[in-house]
Design a protein around this nucleic acid. Structure first.
Lengths: 209, 209, 209, 209
DNA sequence: GCCTAACCGAGACGGTACGTCGTGTCTTGCC
DNA sequence: GGCAAGACACGACGTACCGTCTCGGTTAGGC
């Protein structure tokens, strides 16, 4: 999660209430589920949190940034446990990510915020920092394990390694998001298995000549 | 494009202006590029089109429907030409789709509409009909060609075939969309080549043991 | 009263509701009595009038102008009846003016608006047009009657006549306002009689040597 | 000036800064001139005075009281010098009072405070003590001189004498204030002469039959 | 060639939310 | 305990759009 409340070096004056931060983020998630993105209003969030509107605006510049922060913490839940094989690790991550995207607050928020970010570079950076980069780490960890197990070779060129990690991340996250939000179909164990097989063996693997 | 202007059976009185329809859709796309989804307002579109707000609301029930209609036509451009091999066909589609997503009106509109559709089932259906299903056809055509060339086997189980097509579509479209909109990196020829290699040969193919 | 709703020469579009004007001015006077100037809010007036805030702002640029208009009409009540003598006419006007200033909406509004006008020339003009000039006419009419009765001479120099009328108006209105609002004492018949005697005969008249 | 800073009997701890008091009152007068009553804010005064808002509120309970205190001192300037005749004395007072009302801080403050006092009895008392009563003394002194000179008779009934003094005060102050603030015309020597003539000789005197 | 119904532009309407400002209170840590 | 700094709850501000409504005026069909 992003470190908010980063006290300025000047430490005079009454400090910001940490409780307010918590209450606001909680209220934001609740309002998001109940009302959806477009009906969510700053005034309503403030009221739910028992906080003045000014307190919101003192901490977040816009609805977008507030929602990113409110939702970002949810993405910290995904972890990559060692399940003994590369395929099993991938399936695990896919299913965890899918479970996250099925929660209404996450689904609504992620898409809305990404949509808004097509126009707002600062917001895109915030999303990258708060959500994307953190998940990219999972790909790296999974690869290391697979390399340790001998399932994947070590890549000598570090640039190529980074490029590959990015590619794999886009493929995994993109496929899950697209399936869930655009095609609007569930990501269940069967799909995860099929996807993993495709990813590991390629088109030839699932439907070779 | 969706048929709007479904005249009521009673055809007396002055007919609706076709020019207005054109001007409105044009103005909508322009406003979308300039302002983005959330700043786009009906009043502004009306002013750009030289039309009264009433005229907009007489034709479209909401901002969402107007924008979907205004943008849907753009997605008809993608075609799949026979480039001689499965890999070349995939690369071609990926690059065309990426080119489309680089145009600001498409990028903005697609994400915004998808985001809104997480809350609005009717909108989701409209998107599926107007955009998604049409593109899924490209996957089917590409597979047929690859099968004819002997690059891919024929799948005997038609259900499994459909499942696979859906999977592949989600992987291709998802990866391109995620790369473009979330990772915010360009989809160039190098990336398309790398992605195609991964898709065809799998992780083992790009970084085998 | 000021003519509001002066339709622009361009007469297209829905015309402004005359009923709204009435309701708003009524609501303003009511709110003024109940809450006083400083607690009176535009939102509250709008709610009382059953009208949207925008409707208020479409007609009046500020709280000040609204209140001036709302109160101005009350000052039209004062009339100068022929009571047979200059002194009786003056007493009548003084008592009517005092009665007006004892009504809470008038008292509050007049002072507040005058106070605000020390900083706002447009507002001062509005007050002059809406309230002051109209009352100055009473002085002129009273003088004519006194001249007709032979109580006062005809002034041959028209400029001097105007100067005198202004002076007399400031003395009458100023004394009543000061007594009521600054000294905060009632203007009763005794005071009116004493004031009139002073005005007609001068200091020498009430306490001659 | 009113004594503020009435220290509590408990005199332990750091004493209040006298410099702060001065700076605050100075800043208040400056802000009043620049911004007018309604735009003057406590936060702004505090900033101008280089003082925390807390310090203001520790000394004055509200904006009203602060402004009255800040301005009251200005009204101490008027004096009545013996100019040899009743008329000359009146003219002198009128011109001094007018000069005072032409200073923007006085004009603004007087009207604003009076306006506010129509709703606030405590404030009215404060004004009476700080401003009005002090000026009423000038009327008494002027009358004494005129009586000593033989221009005015001695009034045997002390109650009637007081009534007359009040009346004359309301007439003088009221006329000057009304001319200056409502009619928004200058009080120059001509006007002062005309007014004095009217006051001394009455309507018959300036325009007799 | 006239009628008339549905269209059109303009813009006022009742609402809702916005993001900002001012109020008076409070909570820090320093003096 | 005074004080500067500044966060806090509250409430009004004036603006921007929403989607609806009422105007006067236009424009094609059908008669």
């Amino acid at each position: 999660m992003l470190s908010r409340s980063h006290r300025s070096p000047n430490r005079s004056g009454r400090p910001r209430s940490a409780a307010a931060d918590t209450a606001i983020l909680l209220a934001t998630r609740a309002a998001l589920v109940e009302l959806g993105w477009s009906k969510l209003s700053m005034g309503d969030v403030a009221a739910r949190a028992g906080v003045a509107k000014t307190t919101l605006y003192r901490r977040w510049a816009s609805k977008n940034e507030l929602v990113v922060d409110a939702v970002a913490v949810l993405f910290d839940e995904i972890e990559i446990h060692d399940r003994g094989s590369l395929s099993a690790d991938i399936e695990g991550v896919v299913l965890q990510f899918a479970a996250l995207l099925e929660r209404p607050e996450t689904k609504t928020a992620l898409m809305a915020v990404v949509a808004e970010s097509t126009r707002d570079d600062a917001l895109r950076d915030r999303i990258r920092t708060a959500i994307v980069d953190r998940q990219k780490g999972l790909v790296l960890k999974g690869r290391e394990r697979a390399q340790a197990r001998g399932e994947l070779a070590y890549e000598s060129d570090p640039e190529a390694a980074a490029r590959n990690a990015d590619l794999i991340f886009d493929v995994i996250a993109g496929a899950v998001v697209h399936r869930t939000l655009v095609s609007a179909e569930r990501v269940d164990e069967d799909w995860a298995r099929g996807f993993t097989l495709l990813l590991v063996t390629g088109l030839g693997g699932i439907q070779g000549p």
